[in-house]
Design a protein around this nucleic acid. Sequence first.
DNA 1: ACTGCGTCCTGGGGGC
DNA 2: TGCCCCCAGGACGCAG
Length: 327
Amino acid sequence: MPELPEVETVRDGLARHVVGARVREVEVLRDYSVRRHDGGPEAFASAMEGATLAASARRGKYLWLPLTPPSPVAAPVETTRQRAAGAAATRPTAGTALLAHLGMSGQLLVRDGRDPWVHPHLRVRLHLEDAPTGATALDFVDQRTFGHLSVADLVPTPDGAPGGLGTDEPAVPGPVAHIARDLLDPVVAPGTPGRAALVAAIRRRRTVVKRALLDQTLVSGVGNIYADEALWRARLHYARATDALRPTDVARVLDAAEEVMREALAVGGTSFDALYVNVNGESGYFARGLAAYGREGEPCPRCGTPIRREAFMNRSSHFCPRCQRRR
DNA sequence: ACTGCGTCCTGGGGGC
DNA sequence: TGCCCCCAGGACGCAG
């Protein structure tokens, strides 16, 4: 499934293959895939058609492609979280963007044939013209349909810093406003005030460390797999209480999460070009790099103790019972 | 305000 | 062989 490194690989690929292209026509094959767009599939299509994809940006696992000229979009329905964050009333628009989340099985595939293959799980197809490398379509393929596309208005970032990687604009799509910056974002780089604030925010939470790592309002882009890997590297049990952790423990697990994701990015970073028409974000990293996730019963690479799997948050947690003591 | 849980969806694969 | 059910996951809405 696409995790942050895979999404970043896709973002980079889109920057080179579809930024600058104009959307000629939109086919929505599965309405559910545009459920987050206010006004439904027809409104989504009309908001996209004729627009040029102007950039390729990412925060956490959200991707967005700013549109020029900005599309008129219906007044967005505020989510509970956005209302709680006070982002509601005064929300000056800074343009619009195609917003994408790949969910757990989503792919963005660049096609360049006149009659490109229709994948059995094709949900949305954007027909393109004038793409920089000759692409004729951008396909959203998604087996389990947890992913989605929408056109959203851009809102300014509170801190005035760029909204995410791949953009200099201090703006993010409205639905991303409550999503925290991710560990590849310069604003929370090691040694910055942003990173220190993140460590403090995690320790203020009254929860357990894995839940905090998965909380997108604290730090984004860490999913179940990388949470387990980061905790293994930091030698922390997933159920350790955040408010009982030392600052160095929290800093260590964040460093580990960043490290794992950067390694995966380095390994998987060539997949876009290598596959080109099969831009699925599958890095080769999963096959060999994982120490804990999905390795129940197999030896811990550090001490040889069998990796254990336990249910947590209706998910699985993988850990070494010797290296990662609960206390 | 903050924390935690149920829900959405699909098809591969395990169990019977 | 066939069928059924479970399971995987991110993020949101809502209950407490």
